[in-house]
């Protein structure tokens, strides 16, 4: 279930004060707490809301769901889509699943690291981009694939990386969102 929130997903939210953050959270969690399998959807919503999953948020989730903090942390750290560190405005994910790997995913990753001057799991100094790797986005026929936010870029070549990232460098919205806004 998608849920609109008034909080933006930008990295600035990490500076939001903790009490405000937790107050917002309590409202949202109420929808999920008594549903079987509600934990992961709740975490997804929280990540959307805060841009990442801050530790105080995870602790509150564990209390509300009556699950131990270790269990909630275990779920968080199992899924690569969850992050416990603030992320940049745009999330760049490079697929290193088998098909993308054999078709040059590693070279694409190297080019992105060089272009952004960050390593996997890091965020650029201007907080515009974060970089992560994934294991198969389900688009093997289009390999190698990268995702920037919700956009899939297919048959990516290292030489095209600069141009792709520039699409996102200055805009708040993703091209898809920009398209919709027209």
């Amino acid at each position: 279930m998608e849920r609109s929130t008034h909080a933006c997903a930008c990295a600035g939210c990490s500076e939001q004060n903790e009490e405000q953050m937790l107050a917002q959270l309590d409202d949202i969690l109420t929808d999920y707490v008594n549903k079987p399998g509600g934990l992961i959807p709740a975490m997804q919503t929280c990540q959307k809301m805060f841009g990442y999953l801050p530790k105080p948020v995870l602790k509150r989730i564990s209390e509300r769901f009556g699950k131990s903090y270790s269990e909630v942390a275990g779920v968080t750290s199992f899924y690569s889509f969850f992050s416990t560190v603030p992320r940049g405005k745009h999330m760049v994910r490079v697929c290193l699943g088998t098909a993308c790997y054999v078709r040059g995913g590693k070279e694409v990753l190297r080019a992105i690291k060089k272009e952004l001057a960050i390593d996997v799991g890091e965020t650029t100094a201007d907080r515009n981009f974060s970089l992560d790797v994934g294991r198969c986005f389900g688009a093997c026929g289009l390999a190698p694939v990268i995702m920037v936010d919700d956009d899939v870029h297919q048959r990516v070549k290292p030489a095209k990386i600069g141009a792709i990232l520039r699409l996102y460098a200055d805009s708040e919205a993703t091209p898809a969102e920009a398209e919709l806004a027209k």
């Binding site: 131990s68 270790s70 269990e71 942390a73 275990g74 750290s77």
Partner: peptide, 20 residues
């Protein structure tokens, strides 16, 4: 029903232990 220990992370890097 204590829940101090849980697998953290995944695959080879999994650590069986407390949160994070």
């Amino acid at each position: 029903a204590v829940g101090a220990l849980f697998p953290q992370g995944r695959g080879f890097d999994t650590v069986i232990g407390p949160a994070f």
